[in-house]
């Protein structure tokens, strides 16, 4: 346990003293719940259309694939015309692109970012490394199979896939969303214990609550 996460007495500037338990006070420990589609078919279809047309990507590059996302914002590929935007905060993003290899150290941050995103949320694995480890298949500190740790909706293969492949991936993801097949967040809540067990197997210095949103 890190020292800043331990229980401690804090003294305010005007002399009051109170106890802080960071794991309890700063995080919410309640496990996620399954949130099924609540409205009728017509409304949900409209919602799914809006979700597919407004993909807000979390600005978090995990591996070498992050470099492939940058050209998408520029005039050459211009992903904005497909309704794709980048958001700096996980609260507002609904698409998490794991771009390339994911070291166990980054996996911890990826999990925290993913859990702070709001339901419904989508995960796209970019590059071979997220599927079977790719060229890092025998590395001691990268994960090999992303969907054991986070529910993945779509993989984009290649090492590295070009930006055009990413654009094609967005289009495929949109089709899945419109068909109502992207329920990763609910899958994560249903199999929460399985995902947590897998995550804890590779992350040895687990110093956060089980669920922190």
């Amino acid at each position: 346990m890190k020292p800043e996460l331990e229980k401690r007495i804090v003294r305010t500037p005007d002399g009051q003293e109170f106890e802080v338990d960071p794991l309890r006070d700063y995080y919410c420990e309640a496990a996620p719940t399954v949130m099924p589609a609540a409205y009728g078919k017509i409304v949900e279809d409209l919602f799914n259309w809006a979700r597919s047309q407004s993909l807000w990507i979390l600005g978090f590059g995990t591996g070498c694939g992050a470099i492939e996302m940058r050209p998408l914002m520029t005039p050459r590929f211009d992903a904005y015309r497909y309704g794709v935007q980048w958001r700096p905060t996980p609260r507002q993003a609904n698409l998490f692109i794991i771009s390339g290899y994911l070291s166990t150290k980054t996996l911890k941050r990826a999990i925290r970012s993913y859990e702070q995103m709001q339901n419904p949320k989508y995960v796209v694995g970019l590059g071979s490394c997220t599927i079977n480890g790719g060229m890092y298949w025998d590395s001691y500190n990268t994960i090999k199979c992303l969907d054991q740790y986070l529910p993945v909706d779509l993989y984009i293969t290649g090492c590295m896939p070009r930006p055009e492949a990413l654009l094609q991936g967005f289009e495929d993801l949109k089709k899945l969303i419109r068909a109502g097949k992207c329920e990763g967040a609910n899958k994560y809540s249903e199999n929460f214990d399985w995902y947590k067990a897998n995550q804890k197997q590779v992350i040895h210095d687990w110093d956060m609550p089980d669920y922190n949103w």
């Binding site: 047309q53 211009d78 015309r81 709001q118």
Partner: peptide, 23 residues
């Protein structure tokens, strides 16, 4: 660039209203 479609703001708005969880 080409920029966003003209109805993009509507899609963003409906999407944000349709998000199931909030804290």
């Amino acid at each position: 660039r080409h920029g966003i479609p003209i109805w993009q703001n509507y899609a963003d708005l409906i999407k944000n209203y349709s998000i199931r969880s909030s804290i």
